[in-house]
Design a protein around this nucleic acid. Structure first.
Lengths: 203, 203
DNA sequence: TAACGGTTTAACCAAACGGTTAACAAAGGT
DNA sequence: ACCTTTGTTAACCGTTTGGTTAAACCGTTA
């Protein structure tokens, strides 16, 4: 039937485009390459998405919308800061292991065109730090945490969790690790990173 | 005189290429753009560097050779771990503020072509972690530090220091900061990051 | 001053690129 | 049966790309 065909082709395109764009970026990706990966004619890309730019934006928004809920989870639930750090660290590293190209893709493309973040900021699920900041402030007052700024703590958390994925070749090089060693390092970090953070901030 | 002219042109090319490549990457940069920025004819690029690839590699090695000594400083001097963390954090953030495009450039291009790191590993000044690891082990034994793996500590340190530069647009977006706010956040991190790490690992 | 070498330029080239077109096929409605 | 809409293809198009070429430029030297 028509409808099924349509959805199939559209999804095949988006899926192929995702794989190519996430690895090669906007500048490195070729429309012909995406068409080949999707097993269709190049003209179909334009039929469904009009231009490379629009196809790319569709892929980018998809990738970003996978990332955002992970952050929202830590920012807006009712756990204590300590629990949030533990669960986020564990979940995030597991999540990225399933989507290894997303962090680098998002960061690379946001650096290429920083205005993208403004477009996305207006979207529904864009994470807000307000609750997290207030919660840190309260736990500091209550004597649960040592004095610390919520924003800096947030940057600490995302840095420790995301950077190893973004800088994988660099870290593999410095530490002289093969792929297996690196995987084990990440596995160990699911525990170590949370301990490391909590160790530092808890009274 | 001939020699001076040569050096001038060669340097003008390398300088222009650096500015363009570091911002746009290998795929985003255009030879014509580099020639324009250098104020010379496009053919000169090929006269001096033969191909885009070779010009790019010259730029990349230059950038990497600025980064490496920063790491060697922390890894191979005779300070205590605590002193190393303090000086590295302070110096590194200052250093990158002067060369803001380098971390992202190096990481982006290493992800595009992970084999680059192998070429560079054979170079003279490539940092080695051996001394740092041994030192961490010793300070743990001596009861100065809580038990921690040197490799993980190293990843913690570089993550906390480098990631904010790489993910600048992302962090600006999440924290709703303008450029001035972000600059202040980085300035504050020169102190906060070292405190944060030491807080966690010192007995 | 004429010949030489390294340097620089304008013009050119083939390939690759994103995008368009026109014709055709398949499906649905009437 | 016929027309309309939607989906698909091959061939094509203009532009941009990295790279080349042949000739000119210019200080040096014999």
């Amino acid at each position: 039937m028509k409808k099924e065909k349509t959805e199939n082709t559209e999804n095949k395109i988006l899926d192929a485009a995702k794989n190519i764009f996430e690895v090669k970026g906007m500048n490195g990706a070729r429309m012909q390459e995406i068409a080949d990966a999707a097993g269709i004619n190049k003209a179909m890309l334009h039929y469904y998405y009009r231009s490379k730019q629009l196809l790319f934006e569709a892929v980018f928004k998809n990738a970003f919308s996978l990332l955002a809920p992970q952050l929202n989870a830590i920012l807006n639930n009712d756990d204590s800061i300590e629990e949030k750090i533990r669960s986020f660290t564990h979940n995030y590293i597991s999540f990225i292991a399933k989507h290894p190209y997303i962090p680098n893709f998002v960061i690379q493309e946001l650096n290429r065109n920083p205005k993208f973040i403004e477009k996305i900021q207006q979207a529904d699920a864009f994470p807000s730090l307000d609750k997290f900041n207030a919660q840190v402030e309260k736990e500091v007052e209550d004597g649960i945490l040592k004095p610390i700024d919520g924003k800096q703590l947030f940057v600490h958390i995302v840095s420790l969790n995301i950077f190893p994925f973004v800088a994988k070749p660099l870290i593999k090089g410095f530490l002289k690790l093969d792929d297996k060693d690196f995987q084990e390092l990440l596995e160990q970090r699911k525990i170590d990173v949370a301990e490391f953070i909590i160790n530092s901030i808890k009274k």
